[in-house]
Design a binder for these strands. Structure first.
Length: 191
DNA sequence: CACCAGGAATGTA
DNA sequence: TACATTCATGGT
């Protein structure tokens, strides 16, 4: 498992996820990038930054219609505008709490619009919790590189968490590297 | 023109 | 539990 990580790191280099100026920006980015490529999520983030709305108070205060227009490039903008406000309320509620990681995870999953992948992305990249993020690339990675198929999200997640040392920085980089691998795999798979 | 991206909720059987 | 549908913009 660690040997595989080293191979990815050597091939693709350090990825440096998550690109953001603050922990809260990671929360926003996690919602904006749902089923959307990062380029489009970045455009939405740029609009928010340009309008000086990239902080908790501003997101809660801005009218939903204006927020929708600013994040339009990320797609699903009506759903996401609402999700951003809900996620922001939860963020303010728990960002400085002393809850255990599993409890924090339940808090995020109780928010409408925050599923497992988004919750885990926030826990790992915004809150520095040792949770391994699973996405479509990760499942493909397991199948192609280890001949293991996981039907359940949490089964796949625990597989990584049990096989690796509980290291937040390792989890961050490993997931980013799997995505880098996945993109290349997809591009050389078509032809 | 079709297809999909750093998903999730809802409904059906 | 296992699929199907909906949401929606922008890149290739």
């Amino acid at each position: 498992m660690l040997a595989l990580y080293r191979k990815l790191l050597k091939r693709y280099g350090k990825q440096g996820w998550w690109p953001a100026d603050s922990r809260y920006e990671v929360v926003i980015g996690a919602v904006l990038t749902q089923n959307t490529n990062w380029k489009n999520a970045e455009k939405a983030l740029a609009n928010l930054r340009e309008r000086n709305v990239l902080d908790e108070e501003s997101i809660l205060k801005i009218p939903i219609g204006e927020l929708e227009e600013l994040i339009r490039p990320s797609g699903f903008y009506r759903q996401k505008a609402e999700r951003l406000k809900l996620a922001t309320k939860k963020w303010l509620e728990i960002k400085n709490s002393k809850l255990e990681t599993t409890e924090l995870r339940e808090e995020w999953l109780s928010v409408k619009g925050i599923g497992k992948e988004t919750a885990d992305s926030i826990l790992l990249y915004a809150m520095d919790r040792p949770v391994f993020v699973i996405d479509a690339y990760t499942r493909r990675f397991c199948k192609e590189m280890m001949d293991k198929e996981f039907k359940e999200y949490d089964d796949c997640r625990r597989f990584f968490e049990n096989a690796l040392p509980k290291d937040v920085e390792l989890y961050k980089e490993y997931h980013a590297l799997i995505v880098a691998w996945g993109k290349e795999f997809r591009s050389r798979e078509g032809p």
